[in-house]
Simulated scan of single mutants.
Amino acid sequence: MISGYTALYGLVAHPAHHSLSPMIHNLGFKQHQIDARYLVFDSQAQPQNIATAIRTLGVAGVNLSMPYKQSLVPLMDELMPAAQLVGAINTVALQSGKLVGTNTDGDGFWRALQKRYPNLASQQIVMLGAGGAGLAIIEAAARYGVATIQVFKRQNPTYVAVEQRLVTIANHHSMSIVLHDYADEQALQHALITADCVINATNLGMVNTPGLPMAAPLIRQIAPTCLVTDLIYAPRQTAFLQLAAQSGHSTQNGLGMLIEQAALSFQFWTGRVLQTDPIYHALMKEF
């Protein structure tokens, strides 16, 4: 039942209506008997207008996706440490009239990975792409025992800025992060041979962006014991994961990350711990 005291949360993104976040969070509110609802706001408004709307309407918290993860950063009154290092936010809370931004993507990814593969030794990582979610995973990696990350990114206008941010993250966590040009197939092949985990953080493989994040023959160069992961969860198994599975690799899609990052957002907003197993089973049953 919605009352005059029902708290409002939501996702601000474009496109947004395909998102599973409303189901996850509304199940969470039901789980903890919290008088709140989570909606989708499919918006192309200017970032300043989004920030103003959150304050003016008293929206208790929002998640952010494209195109707002980076553009709303300068409009926050406070940034949590991980968000400062990454330069991107996916979660905003309205606290005493102030907008507080954080990023739960990175810890969400590693929590999901450890949940399914608790004995996985992920010291050597190959990261394909370095957008907002990819950078968040890189920043969080040190907290989960990762020693070295080899990042492959296209030579585009953001390359130098990403390189500088990776240096900052590496220095902060005292870890090794090496950035390569995505076109350097020799470097990629060498990195794949010794990797414990390969992460596709590009959009190649999504329903509207078919394709592979690397040439098919390179997938066979991945170390046999290496886990192959994809941040994409629709489709549930991308062409990349299909080829990796055919080569005998263990694989994981992005659904676990989606749920675990949502649980961390939920806790950031409410202080309550979300039980994720029932939500995972509900999503699998629904879809």
Rank of each mutant, 00 (worst) to 15 (best):
R154D: 06
P157S: 08
Q123T: 11
I138Q: 06
Q155P: 10
A140C: 04
Q186I: 04
D181Y: 08
L179H: 12
A130R: 13
I137A: 00
Q164C: 04
Q150T: 13
P118Y: 11
K115N: 14
Y117R: 06
I137K: 00
P157Q: 08
E185Q: 15
T168P: 04
Q114A: 11
V178T: 15
R143K: 13
F152I: 01
T148D: 15
T158D: 10
A136G: 01
K153D: 05
I169Y: 10
M175E: 10
N156W: 06
V126S: 00
V146N: 10
Q150C: 05
I149M: 01
I149D: 07
Q114N: 15
Q124T: 05
K115C: 07
R116P: 00
A161T: 14
E185T: 14
A140L: 03
Y159V: 10
S174V: 13
G132W: 03
Q189I: 03
L188C: 01
Y159G: 06
Q124W: 00
E185M: 12
P157R: 10
V162E: 09
A121M: 09
V151R: 03
A130H: 14
T158I: 12
Q114H: 15
Q155A: 10
N156P: 05
A141G: 03
G129R: 14
E185I: 11
Q189L: 08
N171V: 07
A161V: 12
K153H: 13
A183Y: 05
Q124N: 12
E163L: 07
I137T: 03
L179D: 12
A121P: 12
I149S: 03
N171F: 01
S122A: 15
M175C: 07
L135N: 04
A130I: 12
I138W: 06
L188K: 08
H180Y: 08
L128K: 07
P118L: 05
I177Y: 08
S174L: 13
P118K: 10
A170H: 08
Y182A: 09
A121C: 14
A183I: 01
T148E: 15
L113R: 04
Y159K: 07
R143E: 15
F152E: 07
